[in-house]
Design a protein around this nucleic acid. Structure first.
Lengths: 94, 94
DNA sequence: AGCAAGGTTATCATAGATGATAACTTCACA
DNA sequence: TGTGAAGTTATCATCTATGATAACCTTGCT
């Protein structure tokens, strides 16, 4: 599934759309996950192998309401040939 | 043998290198966590209250070999008045 | 039609992250 | 002195992310 497709599908749900602002962060980093894999030209199966896990777990990570730990994020990125950095900025609102 | 030389020699071992980078990453983002709190001028107790948890858990997060999930990272950042972004860059080596 | 690749979903077990409480050390200060 | 604030450590319970397996759905191809 493409990034656009993911977003568009999510936004078709009105509730989801109303919650979009709140969840934007989560959608964002899931998009980044998928984006890394797509840019790397890898299948879930291939990423799973590099992470020494199963493709179903990769699917869950990309589709479920993921709350992965840092280790999982790093491994996924590394499997796709990327590195992660945690960027911090002062919160504008809230 | 100097420390530098020792370090460089050690890093030629791929296993050691990956371990080292892993540790470096963890140190890095833990530093960022503490940095956020210090810049915000907050105590662990205060952050704990904003996160609706205990100060001992904050200490563990900052001192233990932490592998927090995204939700915990976000809450911590928000409690300190910051927002987190996952930054992705192509892996140079590996 | 059959077949395989890519992805999704369901389920279970287990490891480990988090929540909660208590006791402890330092340090600063009255 | 001692009193409180700040942080650390230990421990236990609970929650949940992850690992693993299997069945399923599309889609594209022959």
């Amino acid at each position: 599934m493409s990034l656009q497709a993911l977003k568009q599908r999510a936004l078709k749900n009105p509730d989801v759309k109303s919650e979009y602002e709140k969840l934007e962060n989560e959608f964002h980093f899931i998009d980044q996950l998928i984006g890394m894999r797509i840019k790397a030209g890898l299948t879930q199966q291939q990423v799973a192998e590099k992470m020494h896990t199963q493709k179903s777990n990769i699917s869950r990570l990309e589709r479920g309401n993921a709350n992965p730990n840092w280790s999982t994020l790093s491994k996924y990125a590394q499997a796709c040939g990327f590195e992660l950095t945690l960027t911090v900025q002062r919160s504008s609102s809230t």
